[in-house]
Amino acid sequence: MADPIRELSDLLARLPGVGRRTALRLAFHLLGAPEEYARELGQAIARIRDRVRPCSVCRNLTEQDPCAVCGNPRRDRSIICVVAGVPDLWAIEETGSYRGLYHVLHGLLAPLDGVGPEDLHLDALRARVQADGTAEVIVATRPSVEGEATAFVVRDILKDLPVRVSRIASGVPHGGELEYADRVTLGFALDGRRNMP
């Protein structure tokens, strides 16, 4: 095999979710693709490392600082939604129903892996809430032990500040079948029931 192909294939195989066969297939695909595409891809990969940085306000990954969300004057600055990672931020943005700001933790508490509160940029969140007089912090971490524990830690670090801390709802997914829901999820859904308007 020609060395440049092997080199690219080896590099692609180090990407998460890409095995050796897929990496080789991708390398040959790039070899056969229009030259302009391959060049743009290479430049985009270089740019992502050169230009993408954590937003100094919310730690979203961004080329401009502050990020597009923090820099948008039409966003509701009285609400901060706390998420574990940037993909979660994007998922919430795609709903189109949230107009507040974000704070990205870049992880969840994971005691079995040695990840503690000091690894989650919580001091920066507290400083923001304090400085901006935020009215509400929504904790949108996933409904697992580690996600819930992270939510409780967020609540605890903000408890002496005049801010409402709320938690996203959890339970049976929209369109899901009750008979296939596990008993824990169903239990949470029942515990978290609400009055109908």
Partner: peptide, 11 residues
Amino acid sequence: VAAYPGLASSL
């Protein structure tokens, strides 16, 4: 089968 909610509410 079982979750232990008290674990999540306290570090």
